[in-house]
């Protein structure tokens, strides 16, 4: 396992790293540059950084206008404001005309911790999934975030990039044959009894859960579904057919997110027992990130327990 780093920190570094290579990249923030880590880009490229103040709606639609003039804007704020407050700006000014803007939501999910429910955005993946033509990427570690940033700068169209505050171990740098491609899930570990399909920082926890399950003689496959939309349908269907049971894991609401996407696909094309693990239909709460994740069972132990539950339905 590699260094422990929050995906938001890797994001900040990646923006600076790719700035020279992509001169049309511009970065917008809404008075959260220190938290979203765009402050490094702002310091290195002040003329390409636009602080829009605490006005997310305007920032989001401004980025739409800028993109029509040949720029590649990345907008930045907390996920709650990015996908929540400015949802309709994303819908009507970015997604409907299919403009080339990447909306970055930092501080996604309950791992925000202490700030509590108002700032724990659990619904962003669900909201973004409803928008036609939207690409949704949720990197699982710092290495994957770096690759995702490059891919999204090159991507042409509306995209949502979700990142989190909590530092997690880097795992993709040591995964054999790992390659990042938008829309292509990665099998992190093979297995035959069930497949754990996870996104974001839950991928690393799912790998640990697979180790716990192996100790009990259960062979779990782990898939890193960094792109929630468009979903890698081929991979999900193969996992359903080959392992016969699916557990989805996301640090987000189980209503409308990755779990829903997987269920929608499988119910129509390959009915398979599925269990959705994530934040249930309720709001978050204050606590340390570890405590809040533990509260929702979003831990290796919690994931392993859910895996055993879905196995019983096979």
């Amino acid at each position: 396992m590699g260094e422990k780093i929050a995906t938001r920190a890797a994001y900040g570094k990646a923006l600076v790293e790719f700035a020279e290579q992509y001169p049309n990249l511009v970065v917008l923030d809404a008075d959260l540059a220190n938290a979203t880590n765009t402050n490094k880009f702002a310091a290195a490229y002040p003329d390409r950084f636009f602080d829009c103040g605490i006005a997310e709606a305007n920032m989001t639609a401004m980025a739409a206008g800028m993109s029509t003039c040949g720029l590649k804007p990345f907008t930045n704020t907390f996920a709650i404001f990015a996908a929540g407050r400015a949802f309709e700006q994303i819908r009507n000014s970015i997604a409907y005309p299919h403009l080339n803007v990447t909306v970055v939501g930092s501080h996604g999910g309950p791992s925000v911790g202490e700030d509590g429910a108002t700032h724990q955005m659990n619904e962003d993946i669900a909201l973004m999934r409803t928008l036609p033509g939207m690409t949704i990427v949720v990197p699982c570690d710092g290495n994957e975030m770096r690759l995702a940033v490059k891919a999204l700068i090159e991507n042409d169209g509306p995209a949502y990039l979700r990142m989190c505050r909590y530092a997690v171990e880097t795992i993709t740098d040591e995964t054999p044959g790992y390659e990042f491609k938008i829309g292509k899930g990665v099998t992190m570990k093979d297995g035959s009894d069930l497949t754990i399909i996870a996104t974001g920082i839950m991928v690393g926890y799912s790998m640990k859960a697979a180790e716990l399950l192996a100790a009990e003689g259960i062979s779990a496959r782990v898939v890193n579904m960094h792109t929630v939309k468009p979903l890698d349908e081929e991979l999900v269907l193969a996992c359903a057919k080959e392992t016969g049971a699916i557990l989805t894991v996301e640090e987000a609401s189980t209503v409308g997110g990755l779990g829903s996407a997987v269920c929608e696909l499988l119910s129509e094309k390959c009915p398979t027992p599925v269990l959705r693990h994530g934040v249930p239909d309720e709001f978050g709460r204050s606590g340390s990130a570890a405590d809040v994740l533990n509260y929702f069972g979003l831990t290796p132990e919690g994931i392993a327990a859910k895996a055993k539950e879905v196995l019983k339905r096979k």
């Binding site: 639609a61 980025a63 739409a64 206008g65 800028m66 029509t68 309709e88 700006q89 000014s93 409907y96």
Partner: peptide, 20 residues
Amino acid sequence: DMSTGSLGQGISTAVGMALA
């Protein structure tokens, strides 16, 4: 030059174009 219809958003996109 810009899809509009949801009031308030158009002027923001225009600001983006002028800034660009």
